[in-house]
Design a protein around this nucleic acid. Sequence first.
DNA 1: GCGCTTCTTATTGTATACAAAATTGCGCAG
DNA 2: CTGCGCAATTTTGTATACAATAAGAAGCGC
Lengths: 226, 226
Amino acid sequence: MSRASDRAYSTIREMIVSGELAPGDSLREEALAEICDVSRTPVREALRRLEADMLIHKTESQRSYVADWSLDDIGDAFELRAMLEGHAARRAAKRIDDATLQALRECNARIGKAVIASPPDVDGFLELNREFHALILETAESRRLTGLLTALIEQPVVWRTAHHYGKDELRRSHQEHDELLAAFARGDGAWAESIMAGHIRRAFHAYADAHRGLTAIHSAGGKKQA
Amino acid sequence: MSRASDRAYSTIREMIVSGELAPGDSLREEALAEICDVSRTPVREALRRLEADMLIHKTESQRSYVADWSLDDIGDAFELRAMLEGHAARRAAKRIDDATLQALRECNARIGKAVIASPPDVDGFLELNREFHALILETAESRRLTGLLTALIEQPVVWRTAHHYGKDELRRSHQEHDELLAAFARGDGAWAESIMAGHIRRAFHAYADAHRGLTAIHSAGGKKQA
DNA sequence: GCGCTTCTTATTGTATACAAAATTGCGCAG
DNA sequence: CTGCGCAATTTTGTATACAATAAGAAGCGC
């Protein structure tokens, strides 16, 4: 993390995720280099990584822009996530040991605490939720699956909109994690897969509803739909 | 493709896929730069891309080595491919139009020709097969799915071992494509998904059988395996 | 002789300078 | 006024030089 290219990556990434850089904004290497206080070389490496993450997009003439996400694209990403995380849960159910199961239980207990707080600790929830899913992914023991999923998990939209989660959705999420733990305890891969897939799909619809609400407000004028 | 970094990427990639660089071999940037007749800068970009493809592997001290593939890893990759290509087939079945269907039919007809030739035109088969699957993937209309799959499709092992395909396996493959076309013609996504998943899994077992045969032979003499 | 430290060397990371390519803006002809 | 084409400027791609860091080798004490 102390390396310049890592700093550049984190910095630019954060600017995109936070919305400081809006979808469609152009990314000029020199400008980014100055912002990150490094030279263009590490910036270029960072841009490569961000492109692989699909957070940015290069035109045919090699200029970089912040990727814009249609609702379709987002639905797409969630669909893939549901499938892949479901697969991860199935594999994890077959491989999990007692120590890991216990760790997951503790993690979800802390999620429960974040959820029942008033007001709910959404940031804490997000961090713990991330930890919970990461642990399952690790237990699935598939380097390739991990590689594919990390690209999908780190989505700007998700993080921005998760803050719109209501108390009900947070509790529901916590509850689904518990069901997942039950499936793990029994080593029932198919069950775990079903729950996980549903868990992700629910998250998508929660997002889509919030999004529709937002765009309904914004789009009094009109929509850029193709 | 005329860019130096693309040349470096193709060159190094080809060396790995062909086996000229064996799993575990170290990749020194300067040496590669000389081989590719470019400077280290584009080589570094190429290495990044190859790392994303999981064809190479970086140690904690940032040195690069050709990735070695255990049979488990390969099975893993095929499993993910089966799932994702199955998903692609399902989506494609819902979206396909007559022109694309016709194009797929013609492609598979040419595959048929390559298969019945004696000796079978394996290189032609591979290229057409790639085209066939690419067309389906395109029809699935999911940029993210495309992104995830391209990483999985371009595997060195697959290409090296496909040459071991017997006439039966080639014919079987051609036949499965025909079934897929039937599913597409009826817009039956679930059917298409089943066939595609089976198609990929069959390919894996064909590989695994060949691999077991090969390692049995090799391990009699003794290999430089670490 | 063995283990530790330190110095040397090899390799990667970063910065900068230069080359190539592309976009933009201007000028000019129609 | 519009469309085309050229040139000026901006932006990206590549090469090279230098700095930082990790591996390897030699020296030293025990």
